[in-house]
C-alpha cells in the first residue's frame, strides 16, 4: 500500500522536465540569445526580442521543434496545479488545515478534500499541527491561495520515516523518466520514498541503514545535474 504513494507523483510530474537526449540543450544566462529565427516560438523562460529568442532566466535552453524553452536548474519552488508536494501542517481553521509547502504563500487543505469523512469539530483527529502530509495542488489562484487535495491515490499523512530537502529544480531528475530513477532506488534499498515537487523528500525503510543509503543516493543525483548519463 505504501508503494502506491509514490506512483501518483511520478505519473503526472516528469512528463516534460526529464532530459530527452534527442533535443539540444545548453546552459543559458538571462538575456542570452538562444536562436535567431523568425518562426521559433518562445516557451517558458524565453521571450522574443526582434528576430531573436532570448532567455528570460538562467537554465538549460531546450529546442524541441519550433518551441524554445528554458528549463530551470536552480531557484525556489513555484507551485503549479497538479504538483504533488510534501508539507507541514501549521494551523487548523474551522474549514481545514493550513499547510506550509515551502513556497511563497502557504497552502490550504479544505476539510472536503480529505479522503474520508471528518467531523468538523475534530479536525485534529485526522491531521494535527506538525504532521507531515503528501498532497496534490488542486488549484493555484495566486501565491496567496493554493488549494490542496488528498483525493488521489497515494496521498495522505506521512507517518514515521523522515524528511529532508533537496533543490526543487532537481526533483524531475531524482524521479527520472517515468519514475525510473526513484524506482531504482526504491528497489535497491527497499525503502518507501515520496518526492514532493517542492523539494521535500520523505523516506521510510525497514532499517536506518537502508534509509541512509536511499538518502545518499537521492542527494547524489540532486547534486550532479550536469552528468548526462544519470537518468
Amino acid at each position: 500500500m505504501r508503494n502506491e504513494i509514490n506512483e501518483a507523483h511520478e505519473s503526472a510530474e516528469q512528463s516534460s522536465d526529464t532530459p530527452d537526449f534527442d533535443v539540444k540543450r545548453r546552459v543559458v544566462i538571462p538575456g542570452e540569445i538562444i536562436v535567431s529565427s523568425e518562426d521559433a516560438l518562445p516557451g517558458d523562460g524565453a521571450r522574443r526580442e526582434g528576430e531573436n529568442i532570448v532567455a528570460n532566466r538562467f537554465g538549460l535552453a531546450e529546442e524541441a521543434g519550433r518551441l524554445i524553452k528554458v528549463i530551470p536548474i536552480s531557484g525556489a519552488f513555484v507551485p503549479r496545479r497538479g504538483n504533488v508536494v510534501i508539507g507541514l501542517v501549521t494551523d487548523i481553521t474551522y474549514a481545514g488545515w493550513l499547510v506550509d509547502i515551502d513556497s511563497a504563500g502557504s497552502a490550504f487543505l479544505p476539510i472536503d478534500e480529505s479522503p474520508r469523512f471528518i467531523n468538523r469539530n475534530e479536525l485534529d483527529q485526522f491531521l494535527k499541527i506538525g504532521d507531515v502530509v503528501a498532497a496534490k495542488i488542486w488549484s493555484v489562484k495566486s501565491s496567496k491561495s493554493i488549494d490542496l487535495t488528498l483525493k488521489a491515490r497515494g496521498l495522505g499523512k506521512l507517518e514515521d520515516g523522515f524528511t529532508f530537502k533537496i533543490i526543487p529544480a532537481r526533483v524531475p531528475r531524482v524521479i527520472g523518466r517515468e519514475g525510473s530513477m526513484i524506482n531504482l532506488i526504491k528497489d535497491k534499498t527497499g525503502c518507501n520514498i515520496t518526492v514532493g515537487q517542492n523539494g521535500w523528500v520523505w523516506i521510510k525503510g525497514t532499517s536506518t541503514d537502508s534509509e541512509i543509503k536511499a538518502r545518499k543516493a537521492i542527494e547524489f543525483i540532486a547534486n550532479n545535474v550536469h552528468l548526462i548519463g544519470l537518468t
Partner: peptide, 11 residues
Amino acid sequence: LAHAGIPMRYL
C-alpha cells in the same frame, strides 16, 4: 538573482 531563477531581462 540569475542563479535563483528570477525572471530577468539581462544581467
